[in-house]
């Protein structure tokens, strides 16, 4: 599934070993931030859903509204007991997360203090996921 927005930001949903991977491409900004939040909100439940991975390799830019969307994604996944991972971050994104002091918060491996975190870690790759 690929959601196209007029400004060229796309979210492509793919199954991944520990749940789902959302491949983000294009500009994450004021006009497209809601697309990301909506996409994440739609992927919080499902069989074997341990983690939502945001694949950022093709993210060309991210502004403050984009960062707010990432923070909202983190809040939503934590509330649903699902992990969030920002994979393949381009340097501009890492730099922005460092300056704003959000890198640690957004890349913590799993919501701290969740008792079942370890248990879920022990699950193997989901059958049939690719």
């Amino acid at each position: 599934m690929t959601a196209l927005s007029p400004s060229g930001f796309t979210v492509t949903v793919e199954t991944a070993p520990r749940g789902v991977s959302l491949r983000l491409a294009g500009e994450l900004d004021l006009d497209t931030a809601d697309d990301l939040v909506d996409a994440v909100r739609g992927q919080l439940t499902g069989p074997g859903r341990d983690e939502v991975c945001l694949d950022c390799a093709d993210l060309t830019s991210c502004d403050s509204s984009g960062l707010a969307a990432l923070l909202m994604a983190r809040r939503l996944t934590a509330a649903a007991g699902v992990g969030l991972r920002l994979a393949d971050r381009p340097p501009h994104l890492t730099r922005m997360l460092e300056i704003t002091g959000t890198l640690e918060h957004l890349t913590e491996p799993y919501p701290l203090g969740e008792p079942e975190a370890g248990a879920r870690e022990s699950h193997g790759p989901h059958p049939g996921a690719g």
Partner: peptide
């Protein structure tokens, strides 16, 4: 100086 943004965390 470094620090985290305000209003979310």
């Amino acid at each position: 100086t470094r620090g985290s943004l305000v209003g979310v965390l």
